[in-house]
């Protein structure tokens, strides 16, 4: 991270076991979002992570581009065999995304990081759950 650069240039990606943890603490602009997506894809491929957890509880402003980016990250990660969970979305953000017509169908969601991790563990423990219910 640059010390005197002012604006954050990239968002840190932390590795926790077989999960990757991304905490977005600034309002995303398009460049930052694109960089994050590139970094995340590279990191998933490099570490062979099975789950990606994106915490957006500090994000208060979204637009259609950010919404699509979340969707794309989830889709890309799935191709690389990792489940994506978005956690901590603010009510206003949720309403905005819905009004924009972005329901993020391919993204799993949880209320907070704790629940997100639980969800990822459950998904890893029962990978056949979605396709074979019984």
């Amino acid at each position: 991270m640059t010390a005197g650069g002012g604006a954050m240039e990239r968002i840190p990606i932390l590795q926790m076991g077989e999960f990757l943890l991304v905490t977005i603490q600034v309002d995303l602009n398009d460049t930052l979002a694109q960089t994050l997506m590139d970094d995340l894809t590279a990191k998933v491929a490099a570490t062979g992570a099975r789950g990606v957890l994106i915490d957006i509880s500090s994000v208060t402003v979204v637009d259609s581009f950010i919404g699509r980016m979340l969707n794309d990250i989830a889709a890309t990660s799935r191709v690389l065999d990792a489940t994506t969970v978005v956690v901590g979305m603010q009510p206003a953000v949720a309403i905005t995304l819905v009004e924009l017509g972005l329901s993020l169908g391919g993204v799993r969601t949880a209320l907070n990081v704790d629940r997100g991790i639980a969800l990822l563990r459950a998904a890893l423990a029962a990978p056949a759950d979605a396709t074979h219910p019984e």
């Binding site: 978005v86 956690v87 901590g88 979305m89 603010q90 009510p91 953000v93 949720a94 309403i95 995304l97 819905v98 329901s103 993020l104 969601t109 949880a110 209320l111 907070n112 629940r115 997100g116």
Partner: peptide, 9 residues
């Protein structure tokens, strides 16, 4: 319903 789902509920 969609908004609630986005928030994880």
């Amino acid at each position: 319903v969609t908004a609630a789902r986005l928030m994880g509920a």
